[in-house]
Design a protein around this nucleic acid. Structure first.
Length: 219
DNA sequence: GTAGGGTTAGCG
DNA sequence: CGCTAACCCTAC
């Protein structure tokens, strides 16, 4: 699935009056990305390829896989304080009206793994919504990154892991911890849980190995 | 900041 | 209605 996303730098100056609007824009694009992620899961397991044609005017990202960037680190996450970044690398983008008419969204839903949870209203209905919280399911790529992180830092170093492997991802340290717990529940020896996300056998094997190690240390 | 119990969306 | 994954709550 390929989606072209056109965006441009919104504002260069930094007026107080613009700030709320900028924040809204910022949230809107992340809401949009959340929707993409959801569609991704509805459609299939692979990641959506999102191409960004023009990002910040300074051109920090060119033709990047936005979905992966956003979830796994290379795109700036929404900044909690708009004052924090004046260097042009704040994640503020303009959404063109035609974005709302992406036809892949109007097509028929495919069967497959269930979609992401959606507690908040879709940005397609209301242009802006408040947060990316509670919206996104983990991709296999993210799980792989998590497993890499756990094998490097060990279990329990979630903040460390967050800073090194999920720096600008939407995932918080707590999210990482919870996901690891879920992975153990699902893939640990003897578990008969049915999985929703199909991981590479080698990745599952790595999870099992780490789980074993973790148990040994725990006793 | 982390561990671990609790809560809930989304689906069969 | 039950289950799972993602997320929340909060003691420590």
């Amino acid at each position: 699935m390929l989606v072209a996303l056109r965006s441009s730098r919104l504002l260069t100056s930094h007026h107080n009056a613009d700030r709320a609007f900028r924040m809204e824009q910022q949230q809107a694009i992340y809401g949009f990305l959340g929707e993409l992620q959801m569609e991704n899961y509805r459609a299939r397991e692979e990641d959506v390829d999102v191409w960004i044609l023009r990002l910040l005017e300074e051109g920090s990202v060119d033709a990047a896989n936005l979905n992966d960037c956003c979830l796994s680190g290379d795109l700036p996450a929404p900044s909690p304080s708009p004052d924090a970044n004046d260097n042009g690398h704040v994640g503020i983008y303009r959404i063109d009206a035609e974005l709302l008419n992406f036809n892949y969204l109007t097509g028929p839903r495919k069967s497959g793994p269930r979609g992401t949870r959606k507690r908040r209203t879709s940005p397609w209905n209301s242009m802006f919504y408040t947060s990316r919280k509670n919206n996104s399911r983990w991709t296999a790529k993210e799980v792989e990154r998590l497993v890499q992180g756990v094998s490097k830092f060990g279990v329990g170093r979630w903040t460390n892991l967050k800073q090194n492997f999920f720096k600008r991802s939407i995932r918080t340290a707590v999210n990482l911890k919870d996901k690891w717990r879920n992975l153990l529940k699902t893939y640990q020896e003897g578990s008969q849980k049915t999985t929703q996300l199909h991981l590479e056998p080698s990745l599952v094997e790595r999870i099992r190995k780490l789980a074993e190690k973790q148990q040994m240390q725990h006793i």
